[in-house]
Write a protein that binds this DNA or RNA. Structure first.
Length: 421
RNA sequence: GUGGGUAUAGCUCAGUAGGUUAGAGCACCAGAUUGUGGAUCUGGGGGUCGUCGGUUCGAGCCCGAUUAUCCACCCCA
């Protein structure tokens, strides 16, 4: 197939026949966000590269090897957004959203771009539902954000998805933990893989994530962040788990959750499933209390998450969760003969003005084929108009699902609309 | 970036030991006494067998390369 009709690697077309699934998902998301008091925000698809270097961290995989970066005609370095939080924080600062008072609670639905090797549940362009909660240091904000996700997953009917949380500490307790960690790994350095040797110097916490068998075994016995928290971080975690217990959200503490974006502090969490292959993280997020300050704002607490919509739909699909396909056509007006062409057009127009999805044939097809077509597009009702109907000024409305016909009713849009309702 | 699988009609796939004009189901189109849908039946259109090269008298089938795709590692949603 020639390149002109081939989509780029790692991208996906949303087909018209699947659009209703996305609409459903987005409707559920918007309804949930509304219940939890989040307003939608939108922002550009690309940003200055500098933003992601600063916000995401220039040693992360996302920045080092996965960004779509190019120089524009004005000689600026531009990057297609690899994740949402950096853009939202930038927009928050640039537009002084804090000026309206804190907290600021926003959500977004947006595509992200990462130069990855595609596999199940992983694309180069994927879509995320994300939430950012600015201005609160309280653990109740953490609880709220997790509750929102829990609620969304619940109303989508998703089962067998596990909430895992961890605390990776704050600038106060992290140095102590990192030195304990480094000390532990250095004692077993000869058994670590090559990548982890580098990680030991750069960021030993990454070793906890390593899937190498030997490293994993070593990491299993490593000191855990939650055992080295400062009293404040400990209290934060205790409060969060208290909230979750109180509202009946089950979770597990997973000291292996470190997350690959540098800005996280204290709470990190993931919703993970094993039903869609190896890429089972459907949602991931956490707290980032230093990020806003690092990008030039006042010290402001914050947290958020990203939730992969493609993965969400995959989970629903594999769990057999049906999304109802809304009717595409309320009434099909079938015409019989050239003489009724104008009346058919007029009737369809008037039915639409009354808010109905009305359809007619424009290919000059026979009545039988028009009926088949009406059936194929799922028309709920059908009206056949021929010379006879025009002459006597009435027609019958056929209920396509019940296979019944009405008594003859006046051949005008209001009467037909009334019959349908 | 590393590894493995796959590539035949719009879709899902057959294709037997290399051997005539490459098949099926679904979908699409047209019919089955011309004013009526989902079933059935009949017929039809549609494929340079991913691409390039090689082996062979002969390649959809064997070999090499390349591209695409799927899956896994890494990392992430």
């Amino acid at each position: 197939m020639s390149l002109t009709v081939k989509r780029p690697r790692g991208t996906a077309d949303m087909l018209p026949s699947d659009a209703y699934k996305w609409h459903y998902l987005e409707d559920q998301i918007r309804a949930t966000a509304r219940e939890f008091g989040f307003l939608e925000t939108r922002f550009p698809t690309f940003e200055h590269t500098e933003l992601f270097l600063r916000a995401v961290g220039d040693t992360t995989d996302v920045v080092q090897k996965e960004m779509y970066t190019f120089t524009d005609k004005g000689d600026r370095s531009i990057t297609l957004r690899p994740e949402g939080t950096a853009s939202v924080v930038r927009s928050y600062l640039e537009n002084s959203m804090y000026a309206g008072g804190l907290p600021v609670k926003v959500y977004y639905l947006a595509p992200n771009f990462r130069y990855e090797k595609p596999q199940a549940g992983r694309l180069r362009e994927h879509h995320q539902f994300g939430v950012e909660y600015f201005g609160s240091y309280g653990a109740s904000a953490d609880a709220e954000v997790i509750m929102l996700l829990h609620r969304l997953l619940g109303r989508l009917g998703i089962r067998d998805i596990e909430l895992r949380i961890n605390s990776i500490g704050c600038p106060a307790c992290r140095p102590g933990y990192q030195s304990a960690l480094r000390q532990y790994f250095e004692s077993k350095e000869d058994r670590l893989c090559g990548t982890c040797h580098d990680r030991l110097k750069l960021n030993p916490m990454r070793i906890l994530d390593c899937k190498n068998a030997s490293c994993g075994e070593i990491a299993g016995g490593a000191p855990r962040t939650i055992d080295h928290l400062c009293p404040e971080c400990e209290e934060h975690m205790r409060k969060l788990t208290g909230y979750l217990d109180a509202v009946g959200i089950s979770f597990s503490i997973d000291s292996g959750i470190v997350r690959g974006l540098d800005y996280y502090t204290r709470t990190v969490f993931e919703f993970v499933t094993t039903t869609i292959g190896a890429q089972g993280t459907v949602c991931g997020g956490g707290r980032y209390d230093s990020l806003i300050e690092e990008l030039g704002g006042q010290p402001t607490g914050g947290l958020g998450f990203g939730c992969g919509l493609e993965r969400l739909l995959m989970v629903m699909e594999t769990q057999g969760i049906e999304i109802e396909r809304p009717p595409q056509c309320d009434v099909f007006v079938a015409g019989l003969g050239d003489d009724v062409d104008i009346p058919v057009q007029k009737l369809v127009h008037e039915l639409r003005l009354l808010g109905l999805a009305a359809e007619r044939d424009t290919l000059g097809r026979s009545l039988k084929v028009q009926m088949k077509y009406a059936d194929k597009i799922g028309a709920r009702y059908c009206v056949v108009i021929g010379d006879a109907e025009i002459q006597i000024g009435s027609a019958v409305v056929k209920n396509m699902t019940a296979r019944t016909e009405s008594e003859p009713i006046p051949l005008d849009a209001p009467s037909i609309a009334a019959e349908i309702k």
